[in-house]
């Protein structure tokens, strides 16, 4: 690999019509995928699919955000923008995985959670919050892989995990570049410019301690060779499951603590003059 591509060039790659989606990858990576439907509370969201599968003989739970490959598919899966029932289905399946001691593999690919009236009525914020909280203490290994777009809280709801990997050209951001441009500069057309200053590529996120591994894509992007990219994803999952198995054997508490710490350490701040002491004794001050 030569010079890494810029985020805006990668935006073009992940928007390529032929970019493989979770629907393409699942049959290439897993055997015997049985899809399970519904959150048992409201309905079945087609923007998130999930079920039980076998990964090289190991039972796993697969949960994936789905982008359509054409308009018809996109209408079904709402362009990969989940409603609360999608997140609640994901959580239901994650708890099922916990019960049967099988790892959870999340495939993340969404512009963000759907901003709609019904989504608000059914508690989009609560659904995302609950997933984040409950995945944090889920008593089974969790691996998340960003396939294309990792948009905001809608992505994070499936990305609280023990190991986070990103496909080489995928982007993971706090807000879509378009949203970023329209808020900060009041000009949505400056999307590409936003893209390049937001630090949202896999390399950026490795530097920021958010992403653990970068999975190589076929030359020029996953669409050029979906099979090869799927093989690379499989190789990552194999290795990661092995690592997590070792961690898991050391004890559940240790695994869950290290998942907590993975997120706990992210932040960039200064404390002055010193702060290596208990807050109560030295830093508490009466301001009234």
């Amino acid at each position: 690999m030569s010079e890494p591509l810029s985020a805006s060039v990668r935006l073009d790659i992940i928007r390529h019509k032929g970019r493989p989606t979770a629907l393409d990858y699942i049959p290439m990576i897993f055997d015997e995928f049985f899809e399970m439907h519904g959150d048992r509370l409201y309905g079945d969201d087609r923007a998130i699919i999930g079920g039980v599968a076998s990964f090289k003989g190991t039972p796993v739970t697969v949960i994936a955000e789905v982008k359509g490959r054409d308009l018809e598919e996109n209408q079904k899966c709402n362009f990969g923008m989940p409603h609360p029932e999608g997140y609640r289905k994901a959580l239901r399946l994650a708890h099922q995985a916990e019960k049967f001691h099988r790892p959870v593999i999340c495939l993340v690919d969404t512009p963000g959670a759907y901003p709609g009236v019904e989504a608000e009525k059914r508690g989009q914020g609560e659904a995302i919050a609950r997933n984040i909280m409950e995945f944090m203490t889920l008593k089974t290994p969790v691996i998340s892989i960003i396939l294309g777009e990792g948009g905001s809280g809608g992505a994070l709801a499936l990305a609280v995990c023990d190991e986070l990997a990103m496909l080489e050209n995928s982007l993971y951001s706090v807000i879509s570049p378009k949203g970023f441009a329209s808020i900060l500069w009041k000009d949505a057309s400056r999307e590409r410019e936003a893209c390049d200053i937001m630090k949202i590529t896999a390399e950026d996120l490795v530097r920021l301690n958010v992403c653990d591994r970068i999975i190589p894509e076929a030359d020029g992007g996953a669409h050029n060779d979906p099979n090869q990219t799927a093989d690379n994803i499989s190789a990552f999952i194999s290795e990661s499951l092995q690592n997590l198995q070792i961690k898991f054997q050391k004890g559940l508490d240790e695994m869950i603590n290290s998942r907590y710490n993975k997120f706990r350490v992210v932040g960039d701040f200064d404390e002055f003059p010193h702060s290596d002491t208990q807050p109560e004794e030295t830093k508490a001050e009466n301001i009234q």
């Binding site: 919050a129 951001s173 706090v174 900060l184 949202i200 992210v266």
Partner: peptide, 26 residues
């Protein structure tokens, strides 16, 4: 909402704070 000027680091604060609530619950 998120502090966009801090990028992905801002998004991770959602996980941090929710994780702390999870432990408080437990």
């Amino acid at each position: 909402g998120a502090r966009m000027q801090e990028g992905i680091v801002s998004l991770m604060q959602m996980a941090k704070t929710s994780g702390a609530v999870a432990r408080h619950n437990e």
